[in-house]
């Protein structure tokens, strides 16, 4: 849409930095890619530097690393159970990647990887495919009983089965939309109020206060949305494994 430099949405624009073409695929290195690499590298750095000493009595940094490990480990165990252990590395990578993308985006002048619907949808699609495959492998065709809730009269099946199928297919959409909407809305608001501060000059103190509050809220959302994405992944995995 708008390509003006000061549009609140201009921060979401993707610019090609190094054009790369592999066959018919456009694999250009963009500013989005910069921050994806940054997020992945930060996660790896955070973990490997924190665990460098491997101390029996952890220092502050190592405690933080262990805390994040146990946080996700508990999340998986509480929501998926013992069988969830196999998926722990995936869930952990997912949580850390989204969390670091969100957290890096809190720094001014950065690009918000997770504010792009294609990115959040890609994550949601991976989760969706994984969950469906896990369910199919574990239960075979019995997996489709997920679409017919127990204790429902058979006469209602023609109505309920499509509804359940739509609900199931809507999972990745709502998953992607939630993360995308939260981050886009938050960063757009920050930008809008930032524009007010610049426009109003001295009187810009009021919107500045709003920005401070919003910024705190954004920090919370950065964590919360990574958490929600992760816990929903766990819940879907649990559904597929145990077919409630």
């Amino acid at each position: 849409m708008s390509t003006e430099a000061h549009s609140p949405l201009s921060q979401f624009e993707v610019h090609t930095l190094v054009p790369i073409q592999i066959g018919s695929v456009d694999a250009s290195f963009t500013n989005a890619a910069v921050f994806m690499v940054a997020a992945a590298a930060s996660v790896l750095l955070f973990l490997s530097l924190g665990m460098a000493k491997r101390a029996m009595v952890p220092g502050r940094w190592q405690s933080l690393v262990e805390l994040s490990y146990e946080f996700i480990a508990n999340l998986v165990r509480d929501n998926v159970g013992k069988e969830g252990r196999r998926f722990f590395p995936f869930v952990f990578a997912l949580f850390m990647f989204i969390l670091f993308c969100n957290a890096i985006a809190l720094v001014p002048y950065t690009f918000t990887v997770t504010s792009h619907i294609i990115v959040t949808f890609a994550f949601a699609a991976v989760v969706f495919v994984l969950v469906t495959l896990v369910g199919l492998f574990k239960h075979g065709l019995h997996f489709f009983s997920l679409f017919l809730p127990k204790g429902v009269p058979i006469a209602l099946a023609p109505l309920l089965v499509p509804i359940e199928i739509i609900s199931y297919l809507a999972r990745p959409v709502s998953l992607a939309l939630r993360l995308f909407a939260n981050l886009t809305a938050g960063h757009t608001m920050l930008k809008v109020f930032g524009g007010f501060v610049v426009m109003l000059g001295l009187a810009g103190v009021a919107p500045l206060l709003v920005i401070v509050v919003l910024y705190g809220l954004e920090t919370l959302i950065a964590f919360l949305q990574a958490y929600v994405f992760t816990i929903l992944t766990c819940i879907y995995l649990n559904d597929a494994l145990h077919l409630h």
């Binding site: 849409m1 993707v14 695929v25 963009t30 989005a32 890619a33 994806m36 792009h116 294609i118 990115v119």
Partner: peptide, 16 residues
């Protein structure tokens, strides 16, 4: 909305 620019989808997916 820049997020709906389909031209940026492929490079993002590749790098993601």
């Amino acid at each position: 909305m820049p997020q709906l620019d389909t031209a940026t989808f492929m490079p993002q997916l590749v790098w993601l």
